[in-house]
Amino acid sequence: MHTHCFAIPPYILEHIAKKGTKKDQAAALNTISISEQTRGRREALKHMSSLLAVSGKKERIIYDAKHRRFLPGELIMSEGQRKAPSVFAREAYQYSGTTYDFYKEIFGRNSIDDQGMRLDSTVRYGYKYSNAFWNGSQMVYGDGDGRIFRRFTRAIDIVAHELTHGVTDFEASLVYQDLSGALNEHMSDVFGSLVKQYHKKQKVDKADWLIGKGMFTSKINGDAIRSMKAPGTAYDDPRVGKDPQPSHMKDYKKISEDNGGVHIYSGIANHAFYLAAMDIGGCAWEKIGKVWYITLRDKLRPTSDFKDAAKKTFDVAGELFGISSTEQIAIKRAWSDVGVKI
């Protein structure tokens, strides 16, 4: 099932993507992206990467969908523009920039694809749209309905979460279903949280370990959307239910909703990361963040699950810090505490 007709031949779209104006380039790339969704995505991304690559410097583009559902929308802000036209644009611009800086400075990664890919974001997507997503080539943010959710650009960890989905697409390409999907979500939460801690210059004991803090309106009884410290406690309100995240594998069961519970069971791995980070101490991006990044970049495969992630993070910690180092032991203990034995 697909929504879009692709009347323009691919070679013309590719030409526009290479030679067109910035606006036309974005539209062509978006069309290529959607059409490639029915083909091999990873290959498509690799192919598009060469079209998207720029000078290797940070380059951000913000579009406004003006409450419609067409992507990318109207170009409203480009790299270097000093005055943002709206709070949505300012947040998407600043936070995607911070995320870019984080990956560059901490891991030496040059953007989403490690080849200088431009960071495209669309704000004000849909009418009262309470969500944010990564569509394979750009980040998309709704305003929220104002009743339950506030605007999705307001939390830096949400922006970093979406951008990290792009990184995962280019690296492990974790299948977005069941436990590999939960691992995909976990990686986005980990680096979302790390970008927030890096932005605030926080050590592990000062971090709140919440994802999407302040996203609920004051009418909802909830601090955040997820808690890595205490999965299952982020919210509890009749209008949205209770945070369903477990923190232990004993509570895992196969379900059909949410692509097999990718946003639910990510809580188990999130909690393992939190436990290990607290055990190791310091700034989480320096040691355990590096272990997770190398694991995502080099070790995981599309169908990897929590057990694979546990083994690989354990191995990487051994390579970086030594066999039986405190870091490696902390990681093994943390996975064990959430029911994943190495």
């Binding site: 969704q37 569509n135 394979g136 989905h165 977005y176």
Partner: peptide, 18 residues
């Protein structure tokens, strides 16, 4: 004429409908 969408095709965090 309809079929279910394929998995892992760049739809991270999208809503799923049944």
């Amino acid at each position: 004429k309809t079929e279910n969408p394929s998995l892992n095709s760049g739809r991270n965090d999208c809503f799923q409908y049944k």
